[in-house]
Amino acid sequence: MGAGHVHVLYRESSSPVHRLPPEVKIAAMVLFTVAVVATPRAAYWAFGGYALLVAAVAALARVGPRWLLGRALIELPFVLFAFALPFFGTGERVDVAGLSLSVDGLHGAWNILAKGTLGVLASLLLAATTTTRDLIVGLDRLRCPQILTQIATFMLRYLDVLVGEARRMRVARMSRGDDPRFLWQLRGFAAGVGALFLRAFERGERVYLAMVSRGYTGRMPAVWQGAGAATAGQWAAAATVPAIAATIAAVALVLT
């Protein structure tokens, strides 16, 4: 974590996946995820198919499995829930290593683990091959409400600046003998958060003043938004991933 957080996921490269316009990658990733979520959990082979698909895209994007799996660990806290299901699930139970587990719950845990992991891998591939700036451009081209992309643009621009300020304030606090351990750091931490808010808010006001001084009247001019938008060929190329995933999902739905 830290100031680099914003950039660490992007892997500089000129692979074919990197070169695809962001909007097609976002659309492909979301559709792929939806197909995965829609797949019946008992269709184990389907998840194998998805995993192969992810592996193929990763290879094409020159993103190594070690990096991908290492980063995927971030989902661990989010799937803790999955591990509770075998204990709380209803119906038929089996004994595994002396524990009485619900079969339905085990299926449920598998369902969450498989779908959660595939979803995280897909997002990681998107983040590894697309800069944050391009992600915003892509969202914009996908007709995401402009106010949201604008807020996101400002957020990403100033995140590093604020984290840097927070770090300097923390160093200054520690230099004056504040011991950032245990619960009594809470007051210092919260005072720092308060100071950070003041700085963020006041910077927001100054940024706005500087914008008004350059003729801003509440509408962001659309500059060069059209340039570099995806061609039909690029849409088609990226569509292969969700198309294959959708086919797998459809077959799985029919078979189970």
Partner: peptide, 28 residues
Amino acid sequence: VGIVFQDPDDQLFLPTVAEDVAFGPANL
């Protein structure tokens, strides 16, 4: 009146240099 504020981080708010320089004339 072109005002250059003290902290360039207040003035440069867009993702790239070119976009930021374009912001003013685009508003025109």
